[in-house]
Amino acid sequence: MTSVPPAPDGPSPLDPRRLLILRAVAQAGSISAGARALGWTQPAVSQHLQALERSARTPLVLRHSGGVTLTEAGRAAVVHADAIAAHLDAAAREVGELAALGAGTVRLAAFPSALAVLVPPALERLATATGVEVRLVEAEPPEAVELVRAGEVDVALTFGYAESPGVPADLEGLALGVDPVDVVLPAAHPAADRSALRLVDLADDDWVAGCVRCREHLVASAAAAGFVPRVRHETDDYVVVQQLVARGLAVAALPRTALEAYRHPDVTTRAVEGLDGRSLHAVHRAGVERVPAVAALLGALRRG
């Protein structure tokens, strides 16, 4: 059984370097393997672990013939060591990219219509003006925000409406403008050529609705116009939406980025008063905008 010498009363700070040593040992599975990974001697690593346990006032590893096993406190300490390692990695990237005058890699998550319409021009501007490399991940705003929080991407393109803003309180967002939302009608729809089309004029139609946020916005806008939309179909795919509309099976509301990405020849689009656009944002963790490569991407997106 591992024993830990008593320590004076009061909290003792945990040395972050020793937490990283504990992390290396945990990843390697034994003190000797951790020492090899660190390029240290086994006695030196053991001494640092013992010192860390004295500060923690509890065993962090249980030593046995097959290596080591983390205690519950040890597992908790390694979680914080992972965070320290992530912050150090971010620091190294920022310093390295500063030295490289803006060169580097940025990870960007974006929803499909943004990937089709907003992202390519921004990446083209970066390619001609900087050495920044962008790696893309397709993700709807809720998933993209979680990727930012987890540190798996640097920037996420999101959208939001008055009912559901696109920037969470714990993150920062760069406003990229408003993406207007139009109604999409079959070309032969009786209201297609109406000079002053109102949302309530479509109260008797079946509707195609998309994501939760888009559907909430449609329902709220219809309620303000005095009716409840009869949502017959649900899909996030703007190509499928237009295929359904083109065949006279429903009407829909789509943002113009989606209509720019794909436009079915047999639909008509109309701007309707009372159907507000969606706000677009580039969401990121606080401070990451100081990394030159990230700043270059945000600048390219803003100019778009």
Rank of each mutant, 00 (worst) to 15 (best):
G39M: 04
G160D: 08
L101T: 11
D193Q: 10
A26R: 05
L62W: 12
A150L: 07
A56R: 13
L171D: 06
V153C: 09
A91T: 11
L202T: 05
A116Y: 02
A253G: 12
R75E: 13
P190F: 07
P11H: 02
V200W: 05
A175C: 07
D82A: 01
P16G: 07
P292Y: 04
P8Q: 02
A224M: 12
A258I: 01
S55M: 06
R18C: 09
D204V: 08
A203I: 09
Q242W: 06
R198W: 08
G104D: 00
A156P: 11
L259C: 04
H284N: 01
G177N: 03
E124F: 03
A220V: 03
A286N: 01
V25M: 06
G96S: 12
V291I: 13
D206K: 07
A192L: 05
V148Q: 02
A175N: 07
A33W: 00
V183L: 02
F227H: 15
G34E: 10
L298P: 00
G248I: 04
T41Q: 05
T130R: 05
V184N: 02
A156K: 03
L199Y: 04
H284W: 03
T158Q: 06
S65Y: 07
L123Q: 04
A169L: 07
D206Q: 15
V184M: 09
P186S: 14
R290Q: 07
A225G: 05
R36C: 07
T158P: 10
E140I: 08
V132M: 06
P43I: 14
P59Y: 09
W207H: 13
W207L: 08
V134Y: 08
A116C: 01
V272Q: 06
V239C: 02
T58Q: 15
A191P: 00
G160M: 05
A99F: 03
A191G: 04
L52H: 09
A56K: 12
L60F: 02
A252D: 06
D204A: 15
L62T: 15
P265Q: 10
V239R: 15
A114H: 13
S46R: 12
V291C: 01
A296N: 14
A92L: 14
R230C: 06
L101E: 14
L49M: 00
R290H: 15
L280Y: 09
R54E: 15
R213C: 09
A44Q: 14
T257M: 14
A258R: 00
F159C: 01
P265S: 01
A223D: 13
R290M: 00
A271S: 10
E94N: 00
I31L: 12
R18S: 09
L171A: 13
R135A: 12
T130A: 14
R93N: 04
L19F: 14
E133W: 01
H80R: 07
A191R: 12
I21P: 00
V145Y: 01
V137T: 12
E172C: 03
R285G: 13
